[in-house]
Write a protein that binds this DNA or RNA. Structure first.
Lengths: 341, 341
DNA sequence: TTGAAAGCGTTACCAC
DNA sequence: GTGGTAACGCTTTCAA
């Protein structure tokens, strides 16, 4: 037998309106009645029917706010594509999305963007944001108040959120280590690490994963230097040239963030084909450098699926299909070489 | 402005019932009126609303039939898991799925299974079946009659179907070739190919892709022998032992189908750790052999996504969200090594 | 051949 | 505090 608001109302001996008010905490119900209905709902395993919900609420759609540091970062184009797919899939079920893009990782910019989304009356959030106390507290408060908050692409430490949708950075780093070990080299690896920022948890994890796996495999390696590009190609190029001049024995450049194109430019300029790069993600220039053989492989994280599933999770929470605390969605760690581009 | 049956009816100066009859070819409408409505629908870009549809037709759900050669083949467990996810996602929108599993690739068994599904009144099909004239003609006829037919995991040549959901076998093979080239070896590669069946298009493409990419990369290699396991582990083990006895210089076993466990057993028994295997897909035993270092890497095809999206595509066609001819859904070619298992 | 009306499960709103 | 009712978009049935 199907469990509906109607059958619930019948069982509790009240009207559908009352059941609805209880289920949505819209108050104005005697506590004892409310409790009885809640118990009944749980007992019968009531799950709201999206079709009915969508139809009834078609004038008041579900509004989900998305914050992306996508300005000037091509990586997020794929995330956005995934978000658009989710909108296409669910718009006739009442899904509406507001995307707010910012540039970089400045805390106040991000905090303001979150407030912007809330002012737009978003009922759930998908955030790709920074690991900062101010942000963390805001998220905690929102979750506390019952709003689904999905963290997208970048998790935040010790925060109370619905779930994280993104990649496992450490595994991604370890995968690079595993592949490097497979490519038995004549000389030991002398690695230059060009990281995006030492403040980015994900970038650090990628470095840690690499080291651990190379060690575990017993590969001879040395991290010659770790430099920060701040995700700028120009800066990445300068630093790469400079470091290789100082350490001519470098034979591998490990690029943990953006700035891939800059590293590629440096390696092309140097004309030292024995030096190769390893990178993450797959934007246009990365693909070109892979084709050229300058990048040996790149490890990707399915950005499109991240965008799609973050929105889907938030939507499912809003429609009562998922609880406010759900397991994380970890995307696959995907190795791309020239052959499977 | 939203395009609904109501607005369409208004614009055409008829009732909603008439519009519905036209849209579902349920006859009994004056041809000229029908034509006018069809034109209007196209012009306005009418897309049916799933919520309304699901609600109204909640007693007559959409029934999708799935045929899988899953008996005795663990690979299909993941496909089934994806199908179940799709059911969970769409059951409250009226989706119902009937799965028919068969063993092996015998044409009549498959043909009968298809008829079984049709007798169960399925309105769309997802088929993982054999490339045979009899089957092809049946599919052509079904498509002709307006039924969405999705081919799952295995495509069929020159057939008229809605779309193919599965992997690109040739790219998968080429990826193996690319990776092997990256692992510069002392001696040239002497490869034993243990294929599932020479009648399986996918298996052949995996071999072809490997050869092409190794050649393209200028790697020295030789295919010492190609043997058929018929997806049996016992047979694979026997053949592997036998071939390595005859050709002691074999240093790599390329397993294109099932039978991975058998090859692994043979390599363990031989105690020749310099010989490694390469395989496809990721079942329990494959993971173990990867951990042991007997398999160097395995190339996977996201079976769960295949199951999910095949059903989703069929469902979308049934609800009028997608036309009867759609672009294929090709899953990623995923390299798994010990580090990213 | 066509139109009118009921009903699917939910929510919003107004009356009690 | 609570119940009744209309409305969402669609399909189905019955009557004309």
């Amino acid at each position: 037998m199907k469990v509906t608001v109607k059958s619930l109302a019948q069982a509790a001996g009240v009207s559908r309106g009352t059941v609805d008010r209880v289920l949505h905490n819209r108050g104005a119900v005697k506590p004892e009645v409310a409790q009885r209905i809640r118990t009944l709902a749980k007992e019968f395993g009531y799950v709201p029917n999206r079709a009915g919900r969508a139809l009834a609420a078609s004038k008041t759609p579900f509004k989900i706010g998305v914050l992306l540091p996508g300005i000037g970062n091509l990586f997020f184009d794929d995330v956005k594509a995934g978000i658009l797919k989710a909108v296409a899939d669910y718009s006739d079920l009442g899904l509406e999305v507001v995307v707010r893009e910012v540039q970089g990782y400045e805390v106040n910019t991000h905090a303001n963007a979150i407030e912007y989304l809330l002012n737009k009356n978003c009922q759930a959030l998908c955030l790709s944001t920074v690991d900062d106390p101010q942000i963390r507290e805001r998220i905690n408060a929102l979750t506390q108040s019952g709003m689904p908050v999905v963290l997208l692409n970048t998790d935040i430490s010790a925060v109370n959120r619905m779930c994280y949708v993104g990649s496992d950075y450490k595994t991604a780093g370890a995968t690079c280590g595993g592949l490097l070990s497979m490519c038995r080299h004549q000389e030991p690896l002398k690695i230059l690490v060009v990281t995006g920022s030492k403040l980015m948890l994900g970038h650090n994890l990628r470095i840690e994963g690499l080291k651990q796996e190379l060690t575990r495999q017993g590969s001879a390696f040395e991290i010659v230097a770790v430099v920060e590009s701040n995700d700028s190609d120009i800066r990445a190029q300068e630093l790469t040239l400079q470091q290789i001049k100082v350490h001519p024995d470098i034979n591998c450049v490990y690029v943990t963030g953006a700035g891939v194109q800059g590293v590629g430019a440096a390696l092309i300029a140097l004309e030292r084909p024995e030096i190769f790069a390893i990178s993450f993600d797959e934007v246009y220039t990365t693909r070109e450098l892979l084709q050229e053989g300058i990048i040996k492989f790149t490890v990707c994280q399915q950005p499109e699926r991240q965008g799609y599933h973050a929105v889907k999770r938030a939507y499912q929470a809003l429609t009562g299909q998922l609880p406010l605390k759900t397991e994380d969605f970890i995307t696959d760690t995907i190795i791309k070489i020239k052959a499977n581009l």
